[in-house]
Computed example of a mutant assay.
Amino acid sequence: MKSLMRLFRSEPSIARPLYEQVVARARQPHWYREGGAADTMEGRFAVLATLLALTDVRLERGGEEARKASVGLTECFVDDMDSQLRQDGVGDPVMGKKVGGLVGALGGRVGAWRKAIDGEESWEAVAGRSFYRGAEPGEAALAHSVAELKRYWSGLEGRSDDALIGGVLP
């Protein structure tokens, strides 16, 4: 059965170092202090999902190995969310729905950040929804988050596919 599952999944370990580095980035205190992201489960999820979305967009724009790593990155996210929810006591009957909702939230962010990166929507508008879910963060907090997200994106663009897949973040 395990070998059959491998036919339908890329190897999550290809993106494990990258995923771990994105998680570490999402834990940086400045997102919550200066950036005003809520220091709650939902707020931490919003920061992680935002950074993963930007990283995923960059991988999508890379070569074949980067695109494979994009799939692996999402699989690492699913594995992590499944584990986190189980630790919080969520049982099997609702697990799929919960994880599906989180993956959908990540996918929505990927689409929104594509638009911001392509200039179809402002970074401020996308950050407002992605980080703050429509809450008013304050001008200084939003400016901090947008500046840091742009810096992160610029660094992602400046990294080779191999460096990114290996977990070397800006």
Rank of each mutant, 00 (worst) to 15 (best):
Gln28Ile: 12
Gln28Pro: 14
Pro29Cys: 02
Pro29Glu: 13
His30Ile: 11
Trp31Ile: 06
Tyr32Ala: 01
Tyr32His: 08
Tyr32Gly: 00
Tyr32Ile: 09
Glu34Asp: 11
Glu34Leu: 14
Gly35Asp: 03
Gly35Thr: 02
Gly36Arg: 00
Gly36Gln: 01
Ala37Thr: 00
Ala37Trp: 08
Ala38Ile: 14
Thr40Pro: 02
Glu42Gly: 14
Glu42Arg: 11
Gly43Lys: 15
Gly43Leu: 10
Arg44Thr: 08
Arg44Asn: 04
Phe45Leu: 08
Ala46Asp: 08
Ala46Gln: 13
Val47Cys: 03
Leu48Tyr: 08
Leu48Cys: 02
Thr50Ala: 03
Leu52Val: 11
Leu52His: 13
Leu54Trp: 00
Val57Gln: 02
Val57Ala: 13
Arg58Thr: 08
Leu59Pro: 12
Leu59Gln: 10
Leu59Glu: 00
Glu60Arg: 12
Glu60Phe: 04
Arg61Met: 03
Gly62Glu: 01
Gly63Ser: 02
Glu64Gln: 15
Glu64Cys: 14
Glu65Cys: 00
Ala66Lys: 07
Ala66Gln: 06
Ala66Met: 05
Ala66Val: 08
Arg67Val: 06
Lys68Arg: 08
Ala69Thr: 09
Gly72Ala: 10
Gly72Cys: 05
Thr74Gly: 02
Thr74Pro: 11
Glu75Phe: 04
Phe77Val: 12
Val78Leu: 06
Val78Tyr: 05
Asp79Gln: 12
Asp79Arg: 07
Asp80His: 08
Met81Phe: 12
Asp82Arg: 11
Asp88Tyr: 04
Asp88Lys: 14
Gly89Tyr: 07
Gly89Val: 03
Asp92Thr: 12
Pro93Asp: 11
Pro93Ser: 12
Met95Lys: 06
Met95Leu: 09
Gly96Val: 07
Lys97Arg: 13
Lys97Glu: 01
Gly100Met: 14
Gly101Ile: 15
Gly101Met: 05
Gly101Asp: 04
Leu102Ser: 00
Val103Ser: 15
Val103His: 08
Gly104Asp: 01
Ala105Ser: 07
Arg109Gly: 10
Arg109His: 15
Arg109Glu: 13
Val110Asp: 09
Val110Ser: 03
Gly111Ser: 13
Gly111Cys: 12
Gly111Leu: 13
Gly111Ile: 05
Ala112Lys: 07
Ala112Asp: 15
Trp113Tyr: 10
Trp113Asp: 09
Arg114Cys: 08
Arg114Leu: 02
Ala116Val: 05
Ile117Gln: 11
Asp118Asn: 15
Ser122Ala: 08
Trp123Val: 03
Trp123Arg: 04
Trp123Gln: 03
Trp123Gly: 03
Trp123Met: 14
Glu124Phe: 05
Ala125Cys: 14
Ala125Thr: 07
Ala125Glu: 11
Val126Gln: 15
Val126Ala: 10
Arg129Ala: 09
Tyr132Thr: 01
Tyr132Gln: 10
Arg133Lys: 12
Ala135Ser: 14
Pro137Asp: 10
Pro137Phe: 05
Pro137Val: 04
Gly138Tyr: 09
Gly138Glu: 03
Glu139Gly: 12
Ala141Ile: 11
Ala141Glu: 05
Ala143Met: 11
Ala143Asn: 02
His144Pro: 00
Val146Gln: 08
Ala147Glu: 03
Leu149Tyr: 01
Lys150Phe: 10
Tyr152Asp: 06
Trp153Ile: 06
Ser154Arg: 13
Ser154Cys: 05
Ser154Gly: 05
Ser154Val: 05
Leu156Glu: 00
Glu157Leu: 04
Glu157Asp: 09
Gly158Ser: 09
